[in-house]
């Protein structure tokens, strides 16, 4: 846990992919988890929307003593109320999911927040290592389990990647007893969104896989063969010096040797 840093996790109402039912959004849960790791009980968790939403109790059940709700209707824009809530507060880190599981799900919220507040945005964070002075050191999640360590000046807005620590189990009792600080805010109806027509997305049909192999052995090979690399060259007839030079060049190119 980091002393004396103010962390805010933003949470939304998720949607289960199979049942379509409201749930604790996965990435938002991870944002709370990361927030708890950084700030412990001092973490502020904020939701803009309906304070009566039962799903909020699932977030609270992660061990939050309280949860702040910026009460507004479902047709209102979350951005302006969040901006006015976060603005002028001594906040160091704001954590969000990468994108919401319901609503527009554009993934734009962290970017727009960062733009309007003038803070740094760090996308797809896997972990926050620590805070030194006014700098925070974090790990960005890259494809295939790769990580990149970066240092960013506070305050920041970070979206939390799926690769971050999984959200802890939610417990019924603490969730039930958590205090909700419901704040009345000046909410703005999202005019443009109200004019949209929303349809359920249909999964695109998959291209049929035509099996060309005639024998079982061929199919086995097709299923298990490693993709052939496109780069590189085969040197058979060259002299030893030429081969060594080629290897040396490659090591230079890949920055193994400097």
């Amino acid at each position: 846990m980091q002393p004396n840093i103010n962390v805010v996790s933003l949470v939304s109402v998720g949607r289960h992919p199979q049942s379509g039912r409201a749930r604790r959004a996965e990435q938002d849960g991870q944002a709370v988890e990361l927030g708890l790791k950084l700030a412990g009980k001092a973490l502020t968790v904020v939701h803009a929307g309906n304070a009566q939403e039962p799903v909020l109790r699932q977030y609270a059940g992660m061990g939050l003593p309280s949860l702040t709700v910026l009460a507004q209707e479902s047709n209102c824009d979350a951005l302006p109320v969040l901006v006015s809530f976060l603005k002028d507060k001594p906040i160091d880190v704001v954590l969000t999911g990468v994108r919401a599981e319901s609503g527009e799900s554009s993934g734009m919220l962290p970017y727009l927040l960062a733009e309007q507040l003038g803070w740094s945005l760090v996308p797809r964070v896997a972990d926050i290592i620590g805070v030194q002075g006014d700098e925070v050191e974090l790990l960005l999640a890259l494809p295939r389990g790769q990580r990149r360590a970066v240092k960013v000046k506070l305050p920041i807005i970070a979206s939390v990647d799926n690769a971050a620590q999984e959200a802890r189990q939610t417990a019924f009792g603490p969730g039930l007893r958590a205090q909700f600080n419901v704040l009345t805010v000046e909410s703005v109806v999202d005019e443009s969104a109200s004019r949209w027509q929303i349809n359920a997305a249909k999964p695109r049909p998959k291209r049929l896989k035509v099996v060309k192999a005639k024998t079982a052995a061929d199919r086995m090979k097709a299923a298990t063969a490693k993709p052939m690399g496109s780069g590189g060259k085969i040197m058979k007839d060259e002299t030893a010096a030429e081969k060594a030079q080629a290897i040396f060049d490659l090591l230079l190119e890949e920055k193994v040797v400097r």
């Binding site: 059940g61 061990g63 802890r168 189990q169 417990a171 019924f172 009792g173």
Partner: peptide, 8 residues
Amino acid sequence: LTLEKGDT
């Protein structure tokens, strides 16, 4: 353990 600690 489950309802209070969330530790199943």
